[in-house]
Amino acid sequence: MTGAMTFNEPPERVDLRAAVSAFARDYGSAYYRAKAREGAYLTELWREAGALGYLGVNLPEEYGGGGGGIGDLAAVLEEFSAAGCPTLMMVVSPAICGTVLSRFGTPGQRGRWLPGLAAGETIMAFAITEPDAGSNSHRITTTARRDGDGWVLNGRKTFISGVDVADAVLVVGRVRDEDTGGLSAALFVVPTDTPGFEKHRIEMDLVSPDHQYQLFFDDVRLPADALVGDPEAGLLQLFAGLNPERIMAASLAVGSARHALDRAVAYARERTVWRDTPIGAHQGLAHPLAQVKIELEQARLMTQHAAFRYDSGDDAGAGEAANMAKYAAAEACVRAIDQAVQTLGGNGLASEYGLGSAIASARLARIAPVSREMVLNYVAQQSLGLPKSY
């Protein structure tokens, strides 16, 4: 043997998890739910987490980050979620936008945006989904045309998270190749105060501090340096951000599942109905909770594996692993929260325990940022080599 395989996280990440867990518990699920009901953002948590360096652990040190990888940022989000604070904008701002800018931004773009993202003083949203495109990025109709030294952007986006707290949006559009006439994907940084940029909130049944928006770009004029990277490598740059998105979404789901399981187990240990035996002694509850634990640990390992492959520079392998992790974590999260509610009975829907509002959020994990059906399509075609179905 030339070396031993290990599934242990490095000591630095173990220490990071412990510190983040203690920090997030000081806020906890009661803080998160109160903010969600008010329609307010997690401003205090976000600012303090940024000041402590937790939001930028994956960003380059020269721009105020921790110099780590997506695995480190995913660990932070998992611990936030396990403490009852599933902070969605961590998936978007430091993970997607921070990664894309770190890898493909010019020195000027990195200097302008990354320090703020790392410190939590700047928030960036990400806009790819369109009303008529859905999961098909090839049908995106938001386009940018050259205008002198700059660009003019037109189009619309939907279900874009956190635009109300964002300073800018990283927009996926298309530009026309002047030689071939073809359209290629391109990414633009659009400050939210740019003339012609409009946002309309989408009313949702979800109780969440992260709100959803429709965006409209009507002859939005952008400077030359709004373009990130090279349009010729648009899809490569796009997926450099989407793989971290899936890994982070998986981490959020894993943490949320941990939170629900912890609540259910604590209740099952103490609650007595028949004589003096806690309900957790009965196999009708004990076995489903044990199954949740097994599925949760499987999803957690897959998520850590995906992060390891991405941070190792294996973009192709990370794509497969990230999709599998997102699928497994979403399924584990839905099952965990459903079983937690079932374990608590009527209390599972009482506001005191905070599980009822998590049902819809868990269900969303099967849909966003990529649906379970599209993950299955990916695995069928890319992993199994089956013919494309669409």
Rank of each mutant, 00 (worst) to 15 (best):
L114S: 05
Q381F: 10
D193G: 06
G313M: 04
F104V: 09
G64Q: 09
F308S: 11
D149H: 03
E178M: 07
Q298T: 13
Q339G: 00
P195K: 05
V228Y: 02
L117Q: 06
V92A: 08
A365S: 13
A75N: 02
A362D: 07
R47N: 14
A266T: 11
A322M: 01
P288E: 10
E373G: 10
A82D: 11
V76S: 06
A350N: 11
K199H: 01
A321E: 12
T194R: 03
A168R: 02
Q298V: 12
L42F: 04
V163Y: 13
W274D: 13
R309G: 01
G53Q: 08
T158D: 09
A75W: 00
I247T: 09
E79T: 07
C85A: 15
A18I: 00
D205Y: 01
V172T: 11
N58G: 07
R174G: 08
S161I: 07
H200V: 02
P11H: 04
C333A: 13
G319A: 12
G346K: 03
R176L: 08
I247R: 03
L236Q: 13
P209N: 08
K326P: 00
S351W: 01
I96Y: 06
E331P: 00
L55I: 01
F7M: 13
L114E: 10
L285R: 10
T194H: 05
G66L: 06
S102M: 04
R145K: 12
G345P: 02
I367V: 14
R309L: 15
A329G: 10
G255S: 05
L386Y: 10
Y353F: 15
K35V: 09
P11L: 11
S184G: 12
L301M: 10
D230K: 06
G71D: 13
A51E: 15
A83Q: 06
V254H: 11
R372L: 14
A75Y: 06
Y310T: 09
N136H: 12
G148V: 04
G105S: 13
G280D: 07
L215R: 04
P107D: 15
A316E: 13
M248N: 04
L242T: 15
I294V: 12
M124A: 14
F104D: 10
S81A: 15
V341E: 03
S161F: 01
C333K: 02
G68E: 05
M204I: 05
A75M: 08
L42P: 03
